[in-house]
Computed example of a mutant assay.
Amino acid sequence: MSNQRVGVIGGGQLAGMMATATEKLAIDLLIQTPHKDDPAVAIAHEVILAPIDDANATQQLAEKCDVITFENEFINLEALKKLESQGVCFRPKLSALSPLLDKYQQRSYLKSINIPVPKFTTLEALSLTDFNFPLVIKARRHGYDGQGTFIIKNSEELNHLLEKVNNIPLMVEDYIPFERELALMVARNVKGEIVTYPVVETYQKEQVCHWVIAPANISETVQKEARQIAEHLVTQLDVVGIFGIEFFLTSDEQLLVNEIAPRTHNSGHYTLDACDISQFEMQLKAVTDHPLGSTQLNCLGAVMVNLLGYENSHYDYQEKRQKIANLPHTYVHWYEKTESRVGRKLGHVTRLIKDHKIAPETIAKEIESIWYRNQ
């Protein structure tokens, strides 16, 4: 019996980490990605070297695959809709992605299905009588890892930003003085089976995730509400796949959805080591219609730390990686990127928590102290 053939649009580290489950699930991964040194190329059964928004390349991918899924959402939606109308099987369906790719449209959709979100508007409709500084302004498309997100403290900063953005479509939202930031991975398969992973706490600096603590130290009420929001969203959208949901938690325990990632997500990387079924295996299970299985932790908890570039170089940081790997119950995942740039995700580290003697924040800071030492 031949393996199922799954096409992936995108060849970065998220696609690369799917390889951990392909043999177990009898899946061949075929990748569409622009560069021969992209992280997923080394693990792919077959590669089509082409930009991820090249629909002609996606047509070639479809001819070789049973189903196509996504590593990221920077796609040519209109062109892919033509392929879908011709019978190409995308999971999630394009109708599930369509309301999410533009951040303003995403917020509007979430509000329409009664999911709580911060107050928002378009830049064109902004009235400073309705919003107070500070404001958050986001590029409506293609922003990630803090790119395209601006915290604006006063009118002078707003005017300065408007001079720089060159008619890029922007969304404006309330700045939420949150107690903490949370995230949750949720998966759904063709039969409508839904599973959620533990709610985690994310620690951000300048809108970039530096570390994740699983599980989050929050009330059962907040956990339950987060799960209900996630299940409601994927049911309304008829999702087949896995989504990441980012939340703000306010001081009065109100949950607000910040953003939706319609794919595997950085906040779920801990699942590779801390859960029996990782988020990457879960995505493949969902899109190939396997039973989803357990999302439980296999330990008391985990801390995931991103290894972010802090210089421009071509260097593999082997010595630092080894020092981190020598810590107890610690796993280093290196993305084999050939170039380091400031803020670029080069890898991540998971430390399993076997007892509660050391605070998770202390663990994260110890890993960062090794990584950023002598930078």
Rank of each mutant, 00 (worst) to 15 (best):
H265G: 03
K191A: 15
V47D: 05
V222F: 02
S369K: 11
G16W: 10
G241W: 06
E336K: 13
E173C: 00
E336H: 14
V8A: 04
N189V: 02
P198C: 05
A79G: 15
E281F: 07
K64H: 12
P134Q: 04
A79L: 03
T58H: 09
A19F: 06
E311P: 00
K205A: 12
I31H: 02
E201P: 04
N189G: 01
S2T: 15
R91V: 02
I115R: 00
L101P: 03
L14C: 04
T362H: 11
A79N: 06
R140T: 07
E46V: 00
L123S: 05
H45E: 13
Q204K: 11
T338E: 14
Q254S: 12
Y197S: 10
K191T: 14
L128E: 04
K323I: 10
T202W: 00
A216Q: 08
H356N: 15
P116I: 05
D238C: 10
K119D: 01
T20R: 11
Q86L: 12
K357I: 13
G241V: 08
K93L: 10
T295F: 07
Y270E: 09
A364V: 04
A302D: 06
N114F: 11
P99D: 06
A79S: 13
T122A: 07
Y317H: 14
E201G: 04
P215H: 12
H160T: 15
G11F: 06
G192C: 08
F120K: 00
N326T: 11
H333D: 08
G146W: 01
Q236P: 00
D174H: 03
S112E: 03
T121I: 03
I245V: 13
I229N: 07
Y175G: 00
